[in-house]
């Protein structure tokens, strides 16, 4: 039988070799011959940290078509050429079977922009600057908006009252803006699209109704607005569901004498409006053309013959 002291010594030695610190069970580490950890190095002498001026490069500036993080590729140049054709997160290398740190952060940044675009509100100062007053659908908040598309297609009572009070009735063209699934799209594009659209219509001699902003709006809300204001043609500029490539994509949906419950095939859309898609200023002019065709042909949707 091993004696008490000998046993303690063995335990202490094992614990010492395991480098277990702060073990109350082995109070006499000095006896084992293993040096006690020095406290002075880790705590007392703090290394002085200096804060340098300057920026860490913006991870969202990276062109993912050109990024090549695979180490020692067998045929790098050939694959680098091939991957230029794919707007995907390729050749990102690996850390074990996981992502390297940079691409992981690039992905997180892209998703953060997408989330903020969906869940944040359009800046009221921006809307004031544009001269838009704000009305709401029957959704009281983002959560209801996201889970109840039916309510996002209907105006609340106050909105109906406000539109009746403030808007010119029976306009040739009614334009309004709505957040839809991306507030960032509104912020990024409307300041360019709206003026160029109005300018385009003016050059055709077409009058435009009173513009406004509809919060928590789905596309279908435009039909109730058309009926309420007696608009001949209606156009809503609305944020698209963001992807990771861009969170700022906007669409223009257009109808000729739209009605609540009409088939979707009677709607026209110009989508993918953002700086790397259809540029906002160009989009404004293009939308004006389509709206003019609607007025000329007195129809919209699949029946509309494109100019």
């Amino acid at each position: 039988m091993i004696e008490q002291n000998a046993l303690r010594e063995i335990i202490e030695q094992v614990l010492g070799e395991m480098n277990v610190s702060g073990m109350n069970a082995a109070p006499k580490t000095a006896q084992t011959g293993v040096a006690a950890p020095s406290t002075s190095g880790s705590v007392a002498v703090a290394t002085k940290t200096t804060i340098d001026d300057g920026f860490i490069p913006d991870v969202t500036d990276v062109d993912i078509r050109k990024q090549y993080l695979v180490e020692n590729p067998v045929n790098g140049p050939a694959y680098a050429e091939l991957k230029l054709h794919a707007p995907c997160r390729l050749a990102i290398g690996k850390a074990g079977a996981r992502y390297k740190t940079d691409p992981m952060l690039q992905f997180r940044a892209a998703h953060s922009a997408a989330q903020d675009a969906v869940f944040s509100a359009v800046d009221t100062a921006f809307l004031e600057k544009m001269g838009f007053f704000t009305i709401q659908t029957m959704c009281d908040n983002k959560d209801i908006f996201l889970t109840r598309p039916d309510l996002g297609r209907r105006l609340n009572e106050e909105a109906i009252k406000t539109l009746n009070e403030k808007c010119t009735k029976n306009p040739k063209v009614q334009i309004y803006v709505s957040d839809g699934l991306s507030s960032a799209a509104v912020a990024a594009n409307v300041a360019d699209v709206y003026p160029s659209l109005v300018q385009g219509l003016k050059s055709y001699g077409i009058e435009v109704g009173t513009p406004f902003f509809l919060e928590y709006g789905r596309v279908g809300a435009m039909d109730q607005i058309t009926e309420l204001l007696g608009a001949e043609v209606t156009c809503v500029l609305i944020g698209e569901r963001p992807g990771l490539i861009t969170a700022e994509s906007m669409s223009a949906y257009m109808t000729y004498k739209g009605t609540v419950g009409m088939p979707e095939a009677r709607r026209n859309v110009i989508s993918n409006i953002h700086k790397d898609g259809t540029p906002p200023v160009e989009a404004g002019a293009h939308i004006a053309e389509v709206l003019k065709s609607m007025l000329d042909q007195k129809t919209s949707g699949t029946e509309l013959v494109k100019a």
Partner: peptide, 11 residues
């Protein structure tokens, strides 16, 4: 690729 489908616009 990295969980990001560029065509279906979902992750």
């Amino acid at each position: 690729p990295q969980g990001d489908d560029c065509m279906l616009m979902y992750q």
